[in-house]
């Protein structure tokens, strides 16, 4: 029976081993009980502070130029104060075109790539911005929309980064609207110092017009189709939260019918105009007149006016248009 007698060394070893296993299990369990677990509620981020510029009485709220796309962009932006009024050297600029559809430029469903590229060049070359990001959350397949719209190639050629989802992903952000208080926002939106809104004027089946106010919709993620339940209030909530620094409206080709997707070249009218300004409501009102619509009777435009986002009259008032040349 001698082997059965415990020697001190073995006793100590066994006790230590048993204690180590029990202690380890206890420690792990204790930490786990106190832990809040693997899943947290998503953090809600605040949108960047105001990116707008002070009103300047020397410049009109809206300027319209006709001619070639590039020349029109330059002329219209120059007329509202020049790009240097909106973008400071070294800043990061987010350019938000409408790049939502798997359509070619001729079909007029997306912002014209030449307009986007010109805005990018203005920011980089004239305003000496450090970085220009062109971003949108397309409705159709993201990469196809980016390339078939021509914006991907044109904007990259002008020196911008072009981002579509999944890309840098989405951030849950506080919009503070009436129906949209928090929503998923495409991440490039959060880091930019300036936001330049570059919509295209189009017909829209549900809202009659899609232009500057509605363009912000393209920076949202989530099940944004849900927004169509209260589309007008949602558009105004988005526009109130995003407040672009400058809006450049592409009306070089205007889709008059069957929006927002279109497809038929017959639906597209060659208007050949570009408008720029700080008053999105006025720019949308101007766009509505191109479609032959009364802006007062487009609910989201009049709602935006009543929320203090701008003045319809500034857009519909007769004005002298700039002839920009080819």
């Amino acid at each position: 029976m001698s082997g059965a007698h415990p020697d001190r060394r073995r006793v100590l070893k066994r006790i230590l081993a048993a204690g180590a296993v029990l202690g380890g299990a206890g420690l792990a369990a204790g930490v786990a009980v106190l832990s809040r677990g693997r899943w947290r509620e998503p953090r809600v981020a605040a949108l960047p502070k105001a990116r707008g510029v002070e009103p300047d009485p020397r410049f009109p709220a809206v300027a319209v130029a006709r001619g070639g796309p590039e020349a029109s962009v330059r002329a219209a932006v120059a007329a509202v104060g020049g790009i240097a009024r909106f973008v400071r050297p070294g800043e990061t600029v987010l350019v938000k075109p409408n790049m939502g559809w798997d359509r070619t430029p001729a079909q007029g469903a997306n912002t014209d790539p030449r307009v986007v590229a010109e805005v990018v060049r203005l920011c980089l070359e004239e305003a000496r911005a450090a970085r220009v990001v062109v971003a949108d959350v397309p409705v159709h397949d993201a990469e196809r929309s980016r390339e078939r719209s021509g914006i991907g190639e044109a904007a990259r050629g002008a020196g911008a980064e072009v981002l579509v989802p999944p890309g840098p992903g989405f951030v849950l952000a506080r919009l503070g609207g009436v129906v949209l208080d928090t929503w998923e926002v495409f991440a490039p939106m959060m880091g930019a110092d300036r936001l330049i809104n570059v919509p295209v004027v189009k017909d829209h089946a549900l809202t009659r017009l899609t232009c500057g106010l509605k363009n912000g919709y393209g920076l949202l993620g989530g099940t944004r189709a849900r927004l169509h339940q209260q589309i007008n209030q949602s558009i105004v909530d988005i526009a109130t939260a995003f407040r672009p620094t400058l809006t450049v409206v592409d009306a070089t080709r205007v889709m008059m019918r069957n929006g927002p997707t279109g497809g038929r070249l017959d639906d597209v009218a060659p208007v050949g105009a570009v408008a720029a300004g700080t008053d999105v409501v006025a720019l949308d009102a101007w766009g509505a007149t191109l479609l032959g619509a009364d802006p007062e009777r487009i609910p989201h435009v009049s709602l935006a006016e009543s929320r203090g986002l701008g003045r319809i009259r500034e857009g519909t008032a007769p004005r002298e248009e700039i002839h920009a040349g080819p």
Binding site: A29, A32, V33, S35, R36, R38
Partner: peptide, 9 residues
């Protein structure tokens, strides 16, 4: 439960 949820009832 500890491994999968990083917490423990």
């Amino acid at each position: 439960m500890m491994l999968s949820s990083w917490t423990l009832t």
